[in-house]
């Protein structure tokens, strides 16, 4: 028997958007300093790694919107990265520039998200995860079996993006181009929590019944979250392809999606900063083993480290920071009382 809940009309306070709250200046300064580190200290290789972190981080932020805010699990974020990467690649093959490529990336990711999401977003989160898993597997199969378009399982070389003279075949330029997308998208994701849309997503995550009872139109909110997540994934994939200069189906398979989910969970699914920290961890982990001269050890210790980190930090890295922050606040309060 289905439970009927009377949908109330939206209240006046819900009709008028709350004032946009942008991040504190201190946050902006810290983020700016972190973003400047590669520019000052890094050589070509680490700049390339930093550009990859930015590309994956954008995709992870998309998953954080869907999973951390709206409570919908997706195992296809890697596939949406692939949608963006291959859409950009196909448009570039026609000789069209980055502007058209970006539009194609956004359009393709949105369209695919609508096709997958519209009939299935009514499902429970785990069944939705299965649908997204199935979509990801289908997409990968399609990539492998359409050799004349995609290069098949052998992959395809990707032309670098050239935007205002910045050429992504150079690591520094690739980093700056990725940064130019990462900054506004991060600000958008940060501000989303302060908007009605973001609050509706969180209401759905916490209780669909309660959300319906206060006038939230659940299908519309879910589909917006799904499309937003896909667009972030598509842009991330497009930037990844421009940074690496080569794409192949394994870059966007189930494991890519699972690793993005791991990044979001390890970083802390409720925070945008968590998505970035988790992404940095996942991308830098193999590099760390390279650095100590034990690249083969990564395969062995990487999985163990992933499991251990997730067990020791169940709220993710951002949970640790939140804990430290609350400790400091409590200590200050105690000092004030004394």
């Amino acid at each position: 028997m289905t439970t009927q809940i009377r949908q109330l009309p939206a209240t006046p306070s819900m009709m008028s958007p709350p004032p946009a709250r942008w991040p504190h200046l201190s946050t902006v300064v810290i983020v700016g300093l972190i973003a400047a580190v590669p520019l000052v200290f890094f050589g070509d290789y680490w700049m390339f790694v930093a550009a990859k972190i930015l590309a994956f981080g954008i995709a992870a932020m998309g998953l954080q919107i869907l999973y951390g805010r709206a409570g919908l699990m997706s195992l296809a974020q890697g596939a949406f990265m692939g949608v963006g990467a291959y859409a950009g690649y196909l448009v570039a093959q026609s000789g069209l520039g980055p502007g058209i490529q970006l539009l194609a990336v956004i359009g393709a990711a949105s369209l695919v998200a609508l096709i997958v999401g519209l009939p299935t977003l009514r499902l429970s989160p785990l069944r939705l995860a299965i649908v997204t898993l199935a979509f990801g597997e289908l997409f990968n199969w399609l990539l492998i079996n359409s050799t004349e378009w995609t290069g098949g399982s052998q992959g395809a070389p990707v032309e670098p993006l050239i935007i205002f003279g910045f050429d992504t075949s150079y690591p520094l330029d690739a980093y700056l181009v990725a940064l130019a997308f990462a900054v506004p998208l991060t600000l958008f994701a940060l501000n989303l929590g302060q908007t009605h849309l973001g609050r509706r997503m969180m209401a759905i995550r916490d209780s669909e019944m309660a959300a319906v009872s206060v006038g939230v139109f659940i299908p519309k909110t879910k589909i917006i979250a799904f499309v937003l997540s896909a667009v972030f994934g598509g842009i991330g994939g497009w930037l990844y392809s421009a940074t690496t200069g080569f794409i192949a189906p394994p870059d966007f398979d189930l494991f890519a999606s699972v690793f993005l989910l791991a990044a979001v969970v390890i970083g802390g699914s409720r925070s945008v900063a968590g998505a970035w920290m988790g992404t940095a961890f996942i991308v830098l982990l193999p590099e760390g083993f390279n650095l100590i001269g034990q690249p083969n050890l990564y395969a062995l210790a990487g999985g163990l480290l992933l499991a251990t980190t997730a067990l020791l930090l169940p709220d993710g890295f951002s949970g640790v920071f939140a804990h430290i922050k609350s400790l400091i606040t409590r200590m200050r309060a105690q000092e004030d009382r004394a």
Binding site: G71, V264, V265, S269, A299, G303, A307, A310, L311, D315
Partner: peptide, 15 residues
């Protein structure tokens, strides 16, 4: 902790 079991067992899978 939603998703944590998936991540932990993914680590074991890789190991």
């Amino acid at each position: 902790r939603p998703g944590l079991d998936l991540v932990v067992t993914l680590g074991i899978f890789l190991f």
